[in-house]
Nucleic acid binder design. Structure first.
Lengths: 162, 162
DNA sequence: GGTAAATCGTCTTGTGGAGAGACAATCGTT
DNA sequence: AACGATTGTCTCTCCACAAGACGATTTACC
């Protein structure tokens, strides 16, 4: 179950490991958040609206990296289940602030627990410390992954081959 | 540019970081391997056939995690460009072994260099050591990510979502 | 030895999600 | 009050993906 890093096989490719991990996570996570209306998308919306200041659906969509048209469906599903509610912004009646309800907060707490179990199962051959490291490294990369190729002339050109 | 890990925001979710990193990588990598017929899929096939023993297309598809029908298209595109060739297996004439040509090996070498640059740009706010750590951790998780839920007796299996 | 079942690779077809565009409602500016 | 800009929703199209069918070939069984 070890990887030969000098052979240059398919395991050493980010283009193989990243989709593989993502596919495995999606498969498990979809079941873990099955109770959340809208599926994984609805879960993300629920996390954002409970941990951040209320903003417009458009800003929310841009932050979560999804299309604005899909945001409509996700909020529709959550609102139909009574987990969030749309409130017209008193300052700008075009925007609909999305607020979580008490049921939404409890649903999020339950889903979070189920998701943590799934994530632990996904990274089961990593130690607890390594899991934390992987989470932090991924989050830091994701922070700049959305920017479309900035011209960084000072990018270190050293060989990142393990 | 730092993450507040105690707030439980969206940045702390694997379900946010993983798709974000994967989307950023796909966007950049698609351009880096644009010269490879078949795109990213063709690149993966090229890596596999040059670093592993020749096997059937079906085994190759299962190893790369792609569908057998797509493997046909990928090999078709690579063969049309003269980068791989199908050889009938002398032991079993049903299977077609996929062998790389000299042009395929040089194309792979060039694409690998371009891909390493793209990957370095993606992880540009990580040190070289951290990049190596991330690669290894991802690869180790990916090794078991394909197995469908091996030993989690406390997870309810009653959710076959469509 | 002959026949039936199984396997590999290819082709055709259906399906689901994702994104672009249009449209009504609303705000800011002049 | 009039015009352009922005937000949220709806509709449409496109495309990647997978399931099934089919010919070619091998293996198992009688």
């Amino acid at each position: 179950m070890e990887v030969d890093w000098d052979a240059g096989g398919i395991e050493t490719e980010l283009g193989w490991a990243l989709p593989a991990v993502y596919a495995g996570f999606s498969r498990s996570a979809t079941g873990a958040v099955a109770d959340v209306p809208g599926g994984p998308r609805g879960y993300q919306v629920l996390v954002a609206v409970t941990t951040e200041e209320p903003s417009s659906q458009l800003a929310l969509a841009h932050r979560l990296g999804i299309d604005k048209t899909q945001m409509t469906y996700a909020v529709d599903a959550l609102e139909a289940g009574g987990f969030v509610e749309r409130r017209p912004d008193p300052a700008d009646r075009r925007v609909r602030q999305v607020h979580p309800t008490a049921a939404g907060r409890s649903l999020l707490a339950a889903a979070r627990v189920a998701l943590r179990d799934v994530e632990g199962a996904l990274m089961r051959n990593l130690t607890a410390t390594e899991q934390i490291h992987l989470r932090r490294l991924l989050a830091r990369v994701a922070l700049t992954a959305g920017d479309p190729q900035p011209c960084t002339p000072d990018t270190p050109k050293d060989d990142p081959r393990p």
